[in-house]
């Protein structure tokens, strides 16, 4: 099983990198985009012995304790068989 974890800055936290990318898009005539938030993407390969519930618990713990800084970041994830 694999876990796909997406880490982004909280919506309340300014994202200057995302803003800069957004500005570049507008300068290059991509007018369909109104905002950009950038982040990080992790793929965790999990032990086969973990069932879905255990895997979810493990991934959430890892994402909360290590992959994100809860002061500024939040995460979402999905599990894939």
């Amino acid at each position: 099983m694999k876990a796909h974890v997406y880490v982004t800055l909280k919506s309340t936290v300014l994202d200057p990198q995302g803003q800069t990318i957004g500005n570049a898009l507008r300068k290059n005539q991509y007018h369909g985009v109104t905002d950009v938030r950038q982040g990080k993407y992790f793929v965790l390969t999990l032990q086969d012995s973990l069932d879905a519930a255990d895997a979810a618990a493990e991934v959430e713990r890892i994402a909360r304790d290590i992959l994100t800084n809860p002061v500024i970041e939040e995460f979402t994830y999905r599990l894939e068989d």
């Binding site: 936290v13 300014l14 200057p16 800084n69 002061v71 500024i72």
Partner: peptide, 11 residues
């Protein structure tokens, strides 16, 4: 210590 050090505003 509380808080975090983020990427500089000017990148």
């Amino acid at each position: 210590l509380p808080g975090a050090l983020m990427r500089n505003a000017g990148l």
